[in-house]
Nucleic acid binder design. Structure first.
Length: 522
RNA sequence: GCUCCGGUAGUGUAGUCCGGCCAAUCAUGGUGGCCUUUCGAGCCAUUGACUCGGGUUCAAAUCCCGGCCGGAGCACCA
């Protein structure tokens, strides 16, 4: 349509301003259309959908969902929802050895999906379908599109790099059928043979040349129903190619590291006369806060005690974010806003935190938590009960009885001198009498009760905790904070609260009077 | 080495397919102010970008070529 605009404009003379003016006179609808097309959009772009939409997320359950997996779950499920289609979780658990599946992870993935608000319409286990894969392998062998290769890896690599066929490439169908049978029956040791898909050994892209589809793995599969029933396992490109077709996947949306995988798989689709799903890829994602990470590296660090588990706040898993009180709504919005650009991105979790803060702030009760506490004696302290609000927008009050000794953050009194004045929030103003020992004197009237008309604070406002308190530890990604908090915190287990002047935390547990909180964000 | 992608403010992102009200959207961050008996919250203001060089065109962020930079694949991992 816009080309029509060009046709109109090219027939005009004069300055550009008069052109558009002229166009407005001749064809105002075109002007409107230009406006429309340039409207900014947000979130995920529209998909080309022909009939129904079936999408999948296909993790190897060799660990729990990481931030990267979460992107896959959310983007795919969001599209399925948008087009009233189907969302499938498919466990690509066909490597019992190098990246062996972890039984717990299967459950964790499904649990994480539920947390994210997207229960999959179907759950599929690739390891249930070995016999089906064998069928297709046989079919391809019969078509002379696959062959058994017994070259050692580096020897095949030499052939491949030289664009030359290995000696097994030209074996006839009968020989391949026989050797394939031997693979299945244990006639070759682990590493002794692979089944390769015939592509084009002279293909300009070395990644395409006769790729391996099956190999022998003697390690039993961790799923007990599978165990040691199979010794020939498909590789991703084969397994995924078959599954995507069988499941009727219409759109594959995943990281662009699997871009070449598509080209390899297309050979199978071509041989079998299938139509490949539409594909979309997003670029590499790097999170500032976590740097480079791999599931296996985290696994090791957990094993040696560096991390407390898969939900340690320092670990980039969804389980960790959940424990920290990052809501599903925030995570979804965060991922959807990222879109699916192919650009490699390197981003900070600040965006996620900002989204979460807006969600969590209206509901989170406020509490005093004093980290690195130091006791301060108050002379002339009136005996009183402070009544700060649970939330600045609401009228419910909490009650904190204050005695003549209180605790405040060490950093708040550092650098102060005798004579300096401070306001203790919802209590009274004090004047430092001496630093060593730390003593202050109550000055002015009390203003412990909440009142909208109280005089404006004249001094820096500090939060504090009375002698009657509970020990609190806050586990944050960067460090663990030890301190004390007001007693009411123990009633907030499972909730997200704000520790004033500290940040939002999720109260995780109370064990023998000791509170454990997980840090969300500022 | 071969091959495939990508490059818009500090960070993400919209616009790129189909060139034209694009001196370029939104968010986050930075800065300043206001508000507040917490705050890095809220409100207001402000800051800041089309990777470079050629070409095509009346017109280029958008199309073409080349360079530079970044990422990925070339596994008997997924």
């Amino acid at each position: 349509m816009a080309s029509l605009v060009g046709a109109v404009l090219s027939g005009l003379t004069g300055d550009p301003e008069s052109w558009t003016q002229r166009l407005g006179e001749i064809a105002p609808d075109l002007i409107e259309e230009i406006h429309e097309r340039k409207q900014p959009s947000t979130g995920l772009p529209d998909l080309e959908v022909d009939g129904r939409a079936v999408l999948r997320f296909a993790p190897n359950p060799n660990g729990p969902a990481t931030i990267g997996s979460v992107r896959g779950i959310i983007v795919n499920s969001e599209y399925a929802r948008r087009y009233h289609g189907e969302f499938i979780i498919r466990f690509d658990d066909t490597d019992p050895k190098t990246k062996a599946p972890m039984l717990d992870a299967y459950t964790w993935y499904l649990d994480d999906c539920e947390y994210l608000g997207t229960v999959p319409d179907r759950v599929v286990y690739a390891s249930d379908h070995l016999l089906e894969y064998y069928e297709y392998a046989k079919k391809l062998i019969l078509m002379d599109k696959a062959y058994v290769c017994t070259c050692p890896r580096d020897e095949f690599k030499r052939y491949k790099d030289a664009k030359e066929p290995c000696p097994h490439r030209d074996a006839d169908v009968d020989a391949n059928l026989k050797h394939w049978g031997q693979m299945l029956d244990g006639g070759y040791p682990e590493g002794g043979a692979v089944l390769r898909i015939k592509t084009d050994i002279k293909h300009k892209d070395p990644a395409m040349r006769d790729w391996a589809a099956f190999r022998i793995v003697e390690t039993p599969h961790p799923r007990t129903e599978i165990g040691d029933r199979f010794r020939v396992w498909p590789l991703l490109d084969f397994e995924s190619a078959i599954e995507d077709h069988v499941l009727g996947i219409t759109h594959i949306i995943r990281g662009k590291d699997l871009m070449d995988s598509e080209h390899r798989q297309r050979y199978i689709y071509e041989y079998l006369g299938w139509q490949y799903p539409k594909t979309l890829h997003w670029g590499r994602m790097k999170i500032h806060e976590f740097g480079r990470f791999s599931t296996s590296a985290i696994s090791e660090a957990i094993a040696d005690g560096t991390y407390s588990g898969w939900d340690d706040p320092r670990v980039p898993t969804l389980r960790a974010l959940r424990r920290r009180g990052i809501t599903a709504v925030a995570i979804r919005k965060f991922m959807i806003d990222l879109g699916i650009a192919e650009t490699d991105i390197s981003l900070s979790l600040d965006n996620l935190y900002a989204i979460n803060r807006k969600i969590v702030d209206p509901a989170a009760n406020r509490y005093f938590f004093v980290w690195d506490p130091v006791r301060i004696e108050i002379l002339d302290a009136p005996s009183m009960v402070a009544t700060p609000k649970y939330h600045p927008e609401r009228d419910e009050l909490r009650k904190i009885p204050a005695g003549s000794t209180l605790s405040v953050c060490r950093t708040d009194i550092e650098g102060l001198e005798a004579g300096d004045k401070l306001r203790l929030k919802n209590l009274y103003d004090i004047e430092i009498a001496s630093i060593e020992p730390l003593v202050a004197r109550c000055i002015g009237g009390t203003h412990g009760a909440w009142c909208a008309t109280c005089e404006k604070p004249r001094y820096q406002i500090l939060h504090w905790v009375p002698d009657e308190h509970v020990p609190v530890v806050v586990r944050a990604p960067d460090q663990t904070y030890g301190g004390i908090g007001e007693a009411g915190i123990v009633d907030e287990v499972g909730n997200i609260v704000q520790f004033e002047r500290f940040g939002f935390v999720r109260i995780d547990s109370v064990d023998a009077g000791r509170v454990v909180a997980y840090f969300s964000h500022r």
